[in-house]
Simulated assay, not measured.
Amino acid sequence: MINSEIKREARLSLSSNWGKAVGATLVALFLQTFIIYIYEFLLVGVLDVSETIFSIAHPLFTLVHTIVIVPLTFGVAWFYLQLVRKEETKVSHMFQTYKSGKLAVDSFMLQFLTGLLTMLWTLLLIIPGIIKSIAYSQTVYVYRDNPHINYSDAITESRRLMDGHKWDFVVLHLSFIGWFILSIFTLGIGMLWIMPYMQASKAAFYEELKREKGEFTINSPKIKSIEVNTTESI
């Protein structure tokens, strides 16, 4: 897998869609920043709550923030997948996960389960945890293409796609380090273009994985649990 070709495909998908991509990045950053600002403003700036109340409110806010933001994270990934596939795309499409309770719940559960599995592997050793997080990285796209499969199948399919390509995925991310460093000299403004470029590259990476590994064919009913297989290969 040649990452230079993947990034070229990403640039082509963005060539006539930079306005949408930058707009989507601005909206996503604003929403995340706004939620955090409201929390800090109310609990710290206005209410000046006691340490006891703060210790209770903080984890609750973290949970609410996660529940709200995770579907947006999935929506953003799907937005760029549509761009790479040259499908009609609007900035509003990044909110598609909020239009269905099922999509919102499923996106949260998939994020929770992949995070839980990664944590369990990390408890063994740090490196296996990192490797597993990379192996589960395609789950967001797998679910987009197979919304009726169960959670375990979506995660397993991500592992199948990433088999033999984990290092390629790492190298793809490392290739953006120079761009991120350059963005410092633009006071972070350059991130409005770098983040779409990276997101589109990740979507193009998934498309290349599918071309190489073949389409996923399992179509099983949705379940709400997943078993941890501690004997699976890393």
Rank of each mutant, 00 (worst) to 15 (best):
P221L: 11
S175C: 06
E208R: 13
R11A: 15
W193R: 04
A28K: 00
Y143K: 09
L42M: 08
A204E: 04
S133L: 05
K86Y: 09
G188T: 04
Y197P: 01
I155S: 11
A21T: 09
I130Y: 11
W78C: 09
A57P: 04
S137D: 07
I127A: 08
H93I: 03
I53R: 08
E5A: 13
M109P: 00
F216P: 03
H173F: 03
V44K: 13
I53N: 06
F180I: 04
I35L: 13
S55L: 10
E88T: 12
L124Q: 08
N229G: 13
L161V: 05
S233Q: 11
N3G: 11
Q138W: 02
V27D: 02
E212W: 02
K20A: 10
N3V: 12
A28E: 00
I184T: 11
P128T: 06
L103K: 14
L120R: 00
L113M: 14
S133T: 01
S220D: 15
F79E: 03
H93T: 06
I69Q: 05
G178N: 11
V44A: 10
L192F: 15
V76H: 00
K210P: 01
S16I: 01
L110R: 04
N150K: 12
M94Q: 08
T52I: 07
T25A: 13
A57D: 07
D106G: 01
L120T: 01
Y206Q: 03
F169M: 08
N146H: 15
E88V: 07
D153R: 13
L42C: 02
I189M: 08
I181G: 11
S92Q: 06
L47A: 14
G129V: 01
D163I: 02
T122A: 11
L14M: 07
A135S: 14
K132R: 08
A200C: 05
W18A: 03
S175H: 06
D153K: 14
L120A: 07
I6V: 14
S137I: 00
D145T: 07
A28N: 06
Y143D: 11
S225F: 09
G188P: 03
M195T: 13
A10G: 05
S55R: 11
F30E: 01
K224S: 09
K86L: 04
T89Y: 04
R159M: 15
G178P: 11
L29V: 02
F54L: 14
S158M: 09
L14I: 04
F61K: 06
M198K: 12
G19P: 05
A28H: 03
W193D: 03
L187T: 07
F34P: 02
L123P: 03
N150V: 02
T73L: 07
A135I: 02
L31E: 05
I56P: 03
S92V: 08
E212V: 08
A24R: 02
L124I: 15
G188N: 09
S201A: 15
L83W: 00
R160G: 07
I218A: 15
I131Y: 10
I218N: 15
L26C: 10
K132C: 00
R8Y: 12
I181Q: 10
G19S: 12
T139D: 12
L72V: 00
